[in-house]
């Protein structure tokens, strides 16, 4: 799908409108709620980028290259640095937990910290 189509498909559903200033016929500025074309394109591009990143993460997990934590991190638009700050661990430790064999041996208390930070249940955290 083209980026502006993605934008329209979301904007039509949510009905949220943002304003921008445009001069009217008399040259007086008014707040217009129609998005400009560049805005629709770059925003649609951004959304499709994020979606692609999440899908890529999901595939990596299904292929057994990464732990499900990787997918949930991508879903919350985080990177290891942000996730590490949110759960209060070192980046090194979080990166280690992205490995499937290490993730599968994690204690429930650690999983709970991740679940809390990513706002998912422990069961959800173990699946994609």
């Amino acid at each position: 799908m083209e980026p502006d189509e993605i934008f329209r498909s979301i904007a039509d559903v949510d009905g949220l409108k943002r304003g921008q200033y445009t001069p009217n016929n008399q040259g007086k500025y008014i707040l217009d709620t129609n998005p400009s074309w560049p805005e629709t394109v770059v925003n649609g591009l951004y959304v499709s980028d994020i979606r692609a990143r999440i899908e890529e993460a999901r595939r990596a997990v299904l292929a057994g290259q990464k732990s499900p934590l990787y997918y949930h991190m991508a879903r919350r638009q985080m990177n290891t640095a942000i996730l590490a700050k949110t759960v209060g661990m070192t980046v090194f430790r979080v990166k280690r937990h992205l490995r499937p064999e290490i993730f599968s041996k994690l204690k429930p208390s650690i999983l709970d910290r991740y679940a809390h930070a990513l706002v998912v249940s422990q069961e959800e955290l173990k699946s994609v």
Partner: peptide
């Protein structure tokens, strides 16, 4: 293209009132 798209997002998409706040400033001067 990705880097350019980021710039356009800051210019048009992040609640700038169009053209990176320049229209809003013109409205102020008015």
């Amino acid at each position: 293209c990705r880097l350019l798209a980021d710039i356009i997002r800051w210019l048009e998409d992040t609640g700038t009132g169009g053209a990176g706040f320049r229209y809003m400033y013109a409205a102020f001067l008015q």
